[in-house]
Design a protein around this nucleic acid. Structure first.
Length: 581
RNA sequence: GCACCUGUAGCUCAGCUGGAUAGAGCGCUGCCCUCCGAAGGCAGAGGCCAAAGGUUCGAAUCCUUUCAGGUGCGCCA
């Protein structure tokens, strides 16, 4: 149920009728006719641009079309007023019964109010996190994890069939580095002095891995060359890191459907198959790239390489897929991985990357476009940096100094719910400030608190109602009861509730889950405003002594707010609380 | 040098497939709050939407150019 699309249907029907009556020419395209909430509530509840959009093709004055349309719409009993304004806007005011009905609908449908079939069951693959399996997840990964997870939930809620996927980069040189680093910790566990040189990972988190390796193989690898232990240690260490990462994700409540190993692509002919597909399309050739202008690498020498003609699909330069020694570049398995995704029959792909991978977007899109003949859309969402603050001062992270803040650090300090919500209080491509103190503050400044507090207040009302002997959670009340919700402040809350399904669709279409967080903040704001007005106007309080029916109607409104907040928080992966404490 | 992202109130940021007089929080100013629902509330001031062109009934939104900040740019992933 989406009031806005319902009303758009009504407007279109009226336009069809006008066409039948000869007021509009045949064959007009109504696709651009929109029904939206006006920015200024003074303009009414709904506005349509129909007259302005159709004026030109119909060769009529916008105001004339609007007047005729208004006449038709006034016949609808949901519409109490229809006025022409400005250049040809048609403003409509809806009967209170419409808004009261929204409350009933929310309570009947529960958290499914807002769920839509917009996605028509399309299969969407959302790939996110995909951190190298060389250490614990840090704050940057955390943002990607929360964003990707919320986006996946949002798409699911709007009628898509979603697969959550993590690509394990376990095939490149970095896992050899990991293996050597673990080997050093292994030697250390045997009592040897070791030095961590550049190009190794000195983090403490590898100490237990080295010790565990010792427990497993004893001294079998001590004083042995790499040819003896590298492959084994690599597998062992990678698996240990993935366990660590899975545990980190678990702290946040992120549950992947699928972990896809890069290594599994090697030696199976799948990379070759993907490249052959491109080759068959004439997109693979031997050639030499120009050096980048402005920035001249010291050791630049022209070299002939095997290149993918990504420029044929919108990239700026062609990209190498083989190193000069004949082995694959990192790009080749990525192509194969996306080839695999395409062949698994997804209708759409989404990759969530950190902003430092921005330079990778065009070539990946080019690859997917080429491999799918332009049929499988790929959207790549970049998550910007997270800046940490503690006690009002920036918190510098340095991987080298070992002072980087992990996902676990953050979740341990503020909890998964706060972490998740705060990570979504900015759109993905804007940098995010994360202040450890502010996110726990109990004030209007803090959206996490503000939204949770609204929900807690609803439950406070419910508790009191139960104490007073009412059964406040007994389904949707009758229309007659809901008609008691007649105050503008109450209707304002109901109007906000009515926006929820529309907001979900917009957020899902634009792949922007932060819109859900902002909406919840606004809804909470409307609710708190109503609550606060109860201070001055006792008749706006949710519990009306001695008037059970009115109380139940008001409680229904409060419950509806809680339902939508819970649904929204559910998409964000945040647990609604019933008490603040 | 090139590509991508960003530029909106003093600060931090929203702003829908292009819609009307551009919004919120903080800060600021004023008022209210011993208690009955204040981990506050109400009201107000505050804007050349980085700049200039263009597209059109209409632009913060789309296009072009410029400026500023960030990120990235062959044999790392």
């Amino acid at each position: 149920m989406n009031l806005f699309s319902d009303l758009r249907g009504t407007v279109i029907a009226a336009l069809d009728q006008m066409t039948a009556e000869g007021l509009l020419p045949e064959g007009l395209d109504f696709a651009n006719v929109a029904v939206e909430p006006p920015r200024d509530p003074l303009h009414g509840d709904m506005a349509t641009n129909a007259a302005m959009v159709l004026a030109k093709p119909a060769q009529k004055k916008p105001r004339d079309i609007a007047e005729a349309l208004a006449d038709k719409l006034r016949a609808d009993d949901r519409i109490t007023e229809a006025d022409v304004a400005g250049p040809g806007f048609l403003n409509m005011r809806l009967s209170p019964a419409v808004w009261q009905g929204v409350v009933g609908t929310v309570l009947t449908q529960g958290r499914d109010f807002g769920r839509s079939d917009m996605g028509q069951g399309q299969k969407i693959n959302v790939e996110y996190v995909s951190a190298n399996p060389t250490g614990p997840l840090h704050v940057g990964h955390t943002r990607g994890a929360v964003f990707g997870d919320a986006l996946a939930s949002l798409l699911d809620y709007s009628g898509h069939t979603v697969t959550r996927e993590y690509y394990i980069n376990d095939g490149g040189a970095q896992v050899d580095v990991l293996a050597r680093s673990v080997y050093l910790r292994y030697l250390e566990a045997h009592g040897q002095e070791v030095a961590f040189e550049d190009g190794t990972y000195p983090g403490d988190y590898l100490i237990p891995v080295g010790e565990a390796l010792k427990d497993k193989v004893g001294d079998a690898y001590v004083d042995q060359g790499e040819e003896v232990w590298l492959a084994e240690v690599r597998d062992y260490a990678t698996e240990a890191m993935m366990e660590l990462i899975r545990a980190d994700l678990g702290l946040l409540g992120v549950q992947m459907d699928h972990f896809y190993s890069e290594k599994s692509l090697y030696g199976t002919g799948r990379i070759e198959a993907a490249i052959q597909d491109l080759d068959a399309k004439g997109l693979i050739y031997r050639g030499t790239l120009e050096p980048p202008k402005g920035k001249k690498p010291e050791d630049w020498e022209p070299r002939e390489q095997t290149l993918f003609k990504s420029t044929a699909h919108g990239d700026d330069v062609d990209r190498p897929i083989k190193k000069s020694d004949g082995s694959w570049t990192y790009f080749a398995p990525d192509i194969a991985y996306h080839y695999d995704k395409i062949s698994r029959g997804f209708d759409g792909l989404i990759d969530v990357f950190g902003a430092d991978h921005g330079g990778y977007v065009k070539r990946m899109k080019a690859a997917v476009s080429a491999l799918s003949d332009g049929k499988t859309p790929l959207d790549i969402k970049l998550t910007q940096l997270v800046k940490l603050y503690k006690n009002g001062a920036p918190f510098k992270m340095s991987k080298r100094a070992g002072t980087f803040v992990t996902l676990r650090d953050v979740v341990d300090q503020v909890g998964p719910d706060v972490t998740r919500f705060v990570m979504l209080t900015r759109k993905n491509d804007a940098p995010l400030d994360f202040d450890f103190d502010k996110v726990l503050e109990q004030s209007r400044e803090n959206p996490v608190f503000y939204v949770q507090y609204a929900n807690a207040r609803v439950h406070s009302v419910l508790r009191k109602a139960r104490d007073a002997g009412m059964a406040p959670e007994a389904g949707a009340p009758s229309r007659a009861d809901l008609a008691k919700l007649d105050h503008a402040a109450e209707l304002a809350v109901a109007k906000k509730l009515a926006e929820w399904p529309r907001l979900v669709e917009i957020a899902a279409r634009t792949h922007e889950p932060h819109r859900v967080a902002f909406y919840l903040y606004e809804l909470a704001g409307e609710f708190h405003t109503l609550w606060n007005r109860g201070n001055d106007l006792p008749e706006l309080r949710f519990l009306q002594e001695g008037d059970r029916d009115t109380s139940l109607a008001k409680i229904a409104l409060a419950r509806a707010v809680s339902v939508v907040i819970s649904a929204g928080l559910g998409i964000l992966g945040v647990t609604p609380v019933e008490e603040m404490r």
